[in-house]
Design a protein around this nucleic acid. Structure first.
Length: 537
RNA sequence: GCCCUCGUAGCUCAGGGGAUAGAGCAUUGGCCUCCGGAGCCAUGUGCGCAGGUUCGAAUCCUGCCGAGGGCGCCA
């Protein structure tokens, strides 16, 4: 790694100069400003004070030392600003980046073994089986699937899981609503009044009992949700049924396990969890005075089950569930699990805008935008890319008109267009029988144009971006990187003709390799987001 | 009242303690005999407020202001 070369050269220089105390770590960063080189170290500023040096003076001495025997791959070392030491890499080194990208190809580019096969279970969407998925489920769906892709790319063994709340009060209300509609009656108080209920009721067979209607409704809803998710390329490994926890007595076992840990008590005819002992701000009821479980109890049993199958649990919940995190972690800790191995990511709300106005959602009046509608309106690629372009920590404003438009301000088209252009160059080269071409036949040292080097620098960063987005569970970093790479591709396309226009055959050959490397980057990044890379637009 | 997330350009958003805070769109002006002009280049404006930590803060800490969400024996 070039960064190791740089840090060890800094370390050697510091030792040669007899600087004490020596710094424990040497950090490098990639300056935002290209004029500051490829890598920069602040080590002189960090070390100077304790070692009794002036920062700039120390930086100058270090630079002299390194310049006296410049390591391979480094073109220059300079001092700048208050004492930064800036390293510029040689084009030769960047050409090795190209070789590595081509060697790894789309299937391996950016992949690492950070996860070392650790089993991670990602639970997301988990919508109630009482109706179609709506716009509110979309962000968590795209996000969850993308971090699943990313964690797979960095070496985790990933399971995608959907928890189905197929029992309890809401399900009973749903079944009653279907039956009422079937009989031509009004839905009961607090029932489900959406238009789809009417529609589904007509499809439901006659003469079902409440239990049968519940089961039919649940299956119908699950199937509807599964199909919608498939439209945007999301396929779950596991649909976990809440009622199966009743059948297997897992809920009672969980309560007993909590009792054995003396984490429960009885009060006012109910059974409580001493969650305050584990960091929650209130104790929580497990079994109500009427003998029913609260929502927490089956969910605790469910998480206990997941811990028996996985090393690390990730839950993706909507903003309205954040208050639930502390009690779930408390329940897991009480059961003897490490709450650190349960990560809950909260996705903030999305405001939909269409025609310049906010689209108001009112579940009560059955006015919801179904996820299916969004996908049909703007397509699966735009749906995923737009939701993933922004950090889920922030409220998002989602402009449906923009996402649907096939114009340049639509970022998904901008990125996909970059890919289509590269493919069209390759297609032309294929017609002329110039491509494919083994990379050994190309003279990469001809790639010296600023646009070409920009592309190589972007490609070099990909593995780091993937790792960072995995660590922070932040797929938007991939989306941002893709947009930057696309910018470099368009610039290259504009300024560096690959075929014709007086370009020598030798340069054409070298540039064709770069085209394939850039294409590899675009496809690899888009794959992590679950967005396609079309050959033409 | 308490808890969570957020507040960056006219708009939508990036910004892993560093240098002159970045993209895209919008504005204005350039660039098409040429691999797809669905593009490229140039162009002004900004870190909610006040303290603190640090050689250095948009970033970390505290308080305040503002936005959204949550504080049930609902799910």
């Amino acid at each position: 790694m070039i960064t190791t070369t740089i840090t060890s050269s800094l370390r050697d220089a510091l030792e040669d100069l007899g600087v004490t105390p020596q710094p424990t770590v040497i950090n490098l960063e990639q300056p935002a400003n290209k004029g500051h080189g490829d890598w920069s170290s602040n080590i002189a500023m960090v070390t100077a004070k304790n070692a009794g040096w002036a920062p700039r003076e120390l930086a100058t001495e270090i630079t002299k030392k390194i310049n006296s025997a410049l390591p391979e791959g480094i073109e220059s070392v300079t001092v700048a600003g208050p004492g930064f030491i800036n390293f510029t890499l040689s084009p030769l080194w960047l050409h090795n980046v190209l070789l590595r990208v081509l060697e790894q190809g789309i299937t391996q580019f950016g992949q690492t073994d950070l996860g070392q096969g650790k089993k991670v279970n990602i639970e997301f969407v988990s919508a109630n089986p009482t109706g179609p998925l709506h716009a509110g489920h979309a962000r968590g769906a795209c996000y969850g699937d993308s971090i699943a892709n990313i964690l797979q790319a960095v070496g985790f063994d990933v399971e995608r899981e959907f928890y189905v709340n197929d029992r309890g009060l809401q399900m009973n209300l749903f079944a009653d609503s279907l039956l009422a509609r079937k009989a031509g009656d009004q839905v009961p108080e607090n029932g489900y009044g959406g238009a789809y209920v009417e529609e589904w009721a007509q499809k439901m067979p006659d003469g079902l009992s409440q239990e049968e209607a519940l089961s039919w409704g649940c299956e119908h809803a699950k199937e509807d949700q599964r199909k919608t998710l498939e439209m945007i390329g999301i396929v779950f490994d596991m649909w976990f049924s809440e009622s199966s926890l009743v059948d297997s007595d897992a809920i009672d076992h969980t309560i007993r396990a909590l009792e054995e840990k003396e984490a429960t008590y009885e009060k006012d005819g109910a059974k409580w969890l001493k969650s305050t002992d584990y960091g929650d701000d209130k104790d929580r009821v497990l079994v109500k005075s009427d003998g029913e479980y609260t929502y927490l109890t089956p969910d605790a049993a469910y998480h206990r089950d997941k811990f028996s199958r996985s090393d690390w649990l990730i839950n993706i919940w909507g903003a309205d569930h954040h208050g639930y995190i502390a009690r779930m972690k408390a329940a897991m800790e009480a059961l003897g699990h490490d709450p650190e191995q349960l990560t809950v990511t909260i996705t903030q709300l999305v405001k939909l805008v269409r025609g310049g106005h906010e689209v108001r959602l009112s579940k009560r009046h059955g006015e919801v935008i179904e996820l299916r509608e969004i996908v049909e309106e703007i397509g699966p690629d735009a749906t995923r890319f737009m939701y993933l372009l922004q950090s889920v920590d922030t409220k998002q404003t989602f402009d449906l008109d923009l996402a649907a438009s096939k114009v340049m301000e639509n970022p998904v088209f901008y990125v996909q267009m970059a890919h289509a252009r590269l493919r069209s160059i390759q297609a032309k080269a294929e017609t002329l029988e110039m491509w494919p071409l083994p990379v050994d036949n190309a003279n990469l040292s001809l790639l010296t144009h600023q646009r070409e080097l920009d592309l190589l620098r972007d490609l070099y960063n990909f593995a780091d971006v993937v790792q960072l987005s995995a660590r922070e569970l932040a797929p938007h970093k991939i989306a941002i990187w893709l947009r930057e790479l696309a910018t470099s591709v368009h610039g290259f396309y504009h300024d560096c003709y690959v075929i014709g226009d007086g370009v020598s055959q030798e340069l054409t050959n070298a540039r064709l390799q770069l085209v394939e490397a850039a294409r590899t980057g675009l496809v690899s990044g888009l794959n992590l987001l679950g967005v396609s890379a079309p050959n033409s637009m």
